[in-house]
């Protein structure tokens, strides 16, 4: 925490090395969170890259009263929310497939390398409602408290805890089912 505050302070003074350290420290956690929320490696890579690029551009304006990891995790979750909304719009407009073909053709080599456990987890997460998935991801991977999630989502803490409980139960049955098979 103290190290993060120092890194942030130095980053705000324009120090690139501090930014490099922040990137090295959190890229894996953020990619893992993004994969858990999207079950899509390419989208996760794009989201995390965008979050870091935006963060890099914010040195002069960023105000961080709290935890850096929490801040970055919230940025990732917000972008994924937007991406989910965009995808739903595109699906409604019938242009999803065309976009996928283009993006696959232009895509550089893969950045994130997933373990089998992460693949299993993200596939199971994909089967529960997004709201529940988001709470589980932000709490377990993003390290956020229910209160912090409630504030970020402008929801009551009971709602967030409810989503978490329902999500965990569903996730557990899904995973148990997969193990039984």
């Amino acid at each position: 925490m103290v190290e993060d505050r120092l890194l942030i302070w130095k980053f705000k003074l324009g120090n690139a090395e501090a930014l490099r350290r922040i990137y090295e420290k959190y890229k894996n956690d953020l990619l893992k969170l993004a994969v858990a929320l999207t079950n899509d490696v390419h989208t996760s890579e794009d989201v995390v890259q965008d979050v870091f690029v935006n963060f890099a551009q914010s040195a002069a304006t960023i105000r961080l009263a709290g935890n850096l990891k929490t801040y970055l995790a919230t940025c990732v979750a917000n972008r994924i929310r937007n991406a989910v909304r965009d995808r739903q719009r595109h699906e409604a407009a019938g242009i999803e497939d065309a976009e996928c073909i283009v993006s696959e053709a232009e895509r550089p080599e893969q950045w994130a390398i997933l373990s089998e456990e992460l693949e299993l987890l993200s596939e199971a997460m994909a089967q529960i409602p997004y709201e529940q998935r988001e709470v589980i991801g932000l709490h377990m991977q993003g390290g956020m408290t229910f209160r912090q999630i409630a504030k970020a989502r402008n929801a009551s803490i009971n709602t967030i805890q409810g989503r978490y409980r329902y999500g965990l139960n569903k996730l557990r049955s899904i995973l148990d089912g997969q193990v039984d098979k």
Partner: peptide, 27 residues
């Protein structure tokens, strides 16, 4: 969640970091 490990491709690490640092410098 703990077991679900995540690694990154070092070459892509550098590529993404370059973009981030360029964005920082431009800003």
């Amino acid at each position: 969640f703990k077991k679900a490990a995540m690694n990154t491709n070092p070459r892509m690490d550098d590529t993404v970091l370059d973009k981030v640092l360029i964005a920082h410098e431009k800003a």
